[in-house]
């Protein structure tokens, strides 16, 4: 088997499901395609030898964030094609703009192939080493993130509860 085959399969699946997120009419279908897209991106993390990130990605994105999306869609009860079609001019303009952006990004990131072969160091992505980096070099951002999560939680609860008049 070609050793690069998993990359091509996963890349095709992620691009296809990302397109379906944008193009499908019903919001619930978009959410389900987005879950699939996140799963394929998680498999890319596995291919890139980042097992810890794979676990965190599956738990946080597919486990928490997408469930939140599903909950709010069912709460709002939008599972109908309520969205009237924009006129085709705007769609074509959006497609052309996105295509141009893709070309600009490709052109701007040219030269990645001159970086040479990947580093032979394979022990950097073990959970032990990641923990050392996270709790050593990045200790202050880590603590700030915890405060940010706490304030986001308080904010979400404050926004979500019924206002007392």
């Amino acid at each position: 088997m070609e050793p690069s085959l998993p990359f091509y399969i996963l890349a095709t699946l992620s691009v296809f499901s990302a397109l379906m997120v944008v193009l499908s009419r019903k919001p619930v279908h978009s959410v389900l395609y987005l879950i699939f897209c996140f799963f394929t991106i998680g498999c890319h993390y596995l291919l890139l030898n980042a097992q810890f990130l794979f676990a965190v990605h599956i738990i946080v994105y597919t486990g928490a964030i997408m469930v939140l999306f599903l909950f709010s869609i069912m709460f709002i009860n939008m599972n109908k094609e309520s969205e009237p079609h924009k006129n085709t001019l705007i769609k074509i303009a959006a497609g052309v703009l996105a295509g141009l952006l893709f070309l600009v990004l490709l052109e701007a990131t040219k030269g990645a192939e001159t970086l040479g072969p990947p580093s032979p160091n394979e022990s950097y992505s073990t959970v032990a080493n990641l923990g050392k980096v996270l709790y050593g070099q990045y200790l202050l951002p880590f603590e700030i993130i915890s405060i940010m999560l706490l304030s986001a939680m308080v904010g979400a609860v404050m926004l979500g509860k019924k206002s007392v008049d």
Binding site: A18, V22, P27, K86, A93, A94, L97, L105, L106
Partner: peptide, 19 residues
């Protein structure tokens, strides 16, 4: 880049805020 571009395209032409 392709995934990012697809995201930009979605922001540009969908109207539903959740999407």
């Amino acid at each position: 880049s392709l995934l990012f571009t697809i995201g930009v395209m979605g922001v540009l032409f969908r109207r539903n805020a959740i999407i």
